[in-house]
Design a protein around this nucleic acid. Structure first.
Lengths: 120, 120
DNA sequence: ATTTGTAGTTACCTGGCAGTAACTAGAATA
DNA sequence: TATTCTAGTTACTGCCAGGTAACTACAAAT
């Protein structure tokens, strides 16, 4: 899930991609945003994710310092998640991705199967 | 590789993650940058990638309009890749990720296995 | 005549990601 | 007494992403 070869790279950018470069983490970070949220809420808000994968992703995000986890000694259990300073600092980047996509996204008209070969 | 459920989402951010949210595409886009580059060069510069996966990723990036592909009618074949306007517009975002990582990356001291439970 | 060089594609195979279901604790509620 | 509620974890399983090796086309060099 986290790519160890990427995380062990001597390139800081590659390492960054090694930690946040998968499909779930940006989604989760975006969903959490600036609020405090419980596990069950995340599970119902994030579409198509299983509890197992959600738990794995949250654990990794916590290990990588993007997320803070508060567990209360209660029964039934209650656990709250919120972004750390590092996680919050990542939000504007996600915002930029949103804007970038809205600006440039277009319906896929031509597939790359139509690949053209240019004259020599 | 590309996540179809994500790409079919009605959330533009989710769709964006569906297209560029995997580990290879940001790396490839970053490696290409502002230059024009050939397939073989990419294959030797991008670490740990196989030609098969590289070809797949490039095709998807082209389909999604991030990449332009110029094939010359020569033998042996010559193909050049360069970022489109959309692809170039994504570079600053990668730059931000780099800076973000450099600012906040820390050695992993405590694992999440040390998870603390706070008093009720 | 054989080798080399390029940009892929194809067939084949395997490891690991991810889905599902079952299970936990213990208090509160019906 | 039995059910419910939460936040996971574990075991089992299936499928596909991704790796490897072989192959193509043809010209130019050896």
């Amino acid at each position: 899930m986290r790519d160890d070869r990427f995380c062990a790279s001597n390139c800081p950018f590659t390492r960054a991609i090694g930690t946040i470069g998968n499909k779930w983490k940006p989604i989760i970070i975006n969903v959490i945003g600036t609020r405090t949220i419980r596990f069950g809420q995340l599970d119902s808000i994030v579409p198509h994710i299983s509890r197992k994968v959600l738990a794995e992703q949250l654990k990794e995000l916590e290990e990588d310092g993007l997320l803070e986890r508060l567990a209360y000694k209660e029964l039934p259990p209650r656990v709250e998640y919120k972004l750390s300073e590092k996680g919050l600092a990542f939000l504007p980047i996600l915002e930029n991705i949103k804007e970038w996509n809205c600006k440039y996204e277009v319906a896929l008209t031509s597939k790359a199967t139509d690949r053209v070969t240019y004259a020599k």
